[in-house]
């Protein structure tokens, strides 16, 4: 973990060598999801609700998932951009160092410009929270934080699986966008607005449901039962990363026996 921060520091220094482009890109990252959010806003202006959810409830959902997405893009970019590492052979370098491959790959790249995107989600989050009447409690606040953290872990897990595919082929891995970008787009609305099979897939296979729909119901006071249990739902979702890591280690073994 300490090493991860050292990587973070050195790459931050690198990034600061290109200040203008950093600000420009951060600015752009701020605006890209802006039009998407504007689209959402206009749809609500016309329809008023979506299956009983009103605008600010969906905005909360939107903010949480976008924040998780942007954070994972920032800190797990090494996995997101992994195909480059394999193509130019830099992965060999990772293997001749006495540290875990996961930390080294995570540390190989950071995308600090995503701060622009994070900032936008923070603003949406604040706006939504100010306009929702929620009976806050410590448990609910923790739940909200856990939603974001688990979201980051789920996205990271998907990146890791995608990166693992690079060991076999670097073609067509854009299909994984269905789960990253697609997951983000799907999960910016509460999952119950979709057909059952989509809801099930994104709850039991890729557990976005555990970081948006289920805890959201709890925070908005639409559930009954044990608070602590509801608080822990996002944590169950974050377990998703474990099988992903397993797949990764399998992939590394394959790479070392074939040397693609």
């Amino acid at each position: 973990m300490k090493l991860y921060f050292k990587y973070l520091l050195i790459l931050f220094k690198s990034q600061m060598q290109y200040r203008t482009s950093f600000w420009l890109l951060s600015f752009g990252q701020f605006f890209i999801p802006f039009t998407v959010f504007a689209g959402l806003y206009f749809l609500f202006e016309r329809f008023g609700q979506i299956k009983g959810w009103d605008f600010f409830e969906v905005a909360l959902c939107f903010a949480v998932i976008h924040m998780a997405f942007a954070t994972s893009e920032c800190f797990a970019r090494g996995y997101d951009a992994f195909s480059g590492l394999v193509v130019n052979g830099e992965f060999d370098r990772v293997l001749v160092r006495p540290r875990s491959t996961v930390v080294q790959v995570l540390g190989s790249k950071f995308e600090f410009t995503r701060f622009g995107r994070i900032l936008q989600s923070v603003m949406v989050l604040c706006w939504a929270l100010m306009n929702l009447s929620i009976e806050w409690s410590v448990v609910k606040a923790i739940t909200l934080c856990l939603m974001i953290i688990s979201g980051v872990l789920i996205f990271t897990g998907i990146y890791i699986v995608a990166a693992t595919m690079c060991f076999w082929t670097i073609q067509g891995i854009e299909v994984i966008n269905i789960f990253t970008d697609g997951g983000r787009e799907i999960a910016q609305y509460p999952l119950n607005i979709y057909q059952k099979w989509i809801t099930k897939f994104f709850t039991y296979v890729i557990p976005f449901g555990t970081v948006n729909y289920l805890p959201l119901m709890y925070i908005l006071g639409r559930t009954e039962g044990n608070d602590i249990l509801h608080m822990l739902t996002p944590l169950i979702g974050s377990l998703f990363i474990l099988p992903c890591l397993l797949v990764w280690h399998f992939g590394v073994r394959h790479y070392r026996s074939t040397g693609s």
Binding site: L11, K13, S14, Q17, Y18, N88, G89, E90, D92
Partner: peptide, 12 residues
Amino acid sequence: VFGQRSQLWWDV
């Protein structure tokens, strides 16, 4: 040492 690749961080 891989002569054709670098293990140093380019911008620092």
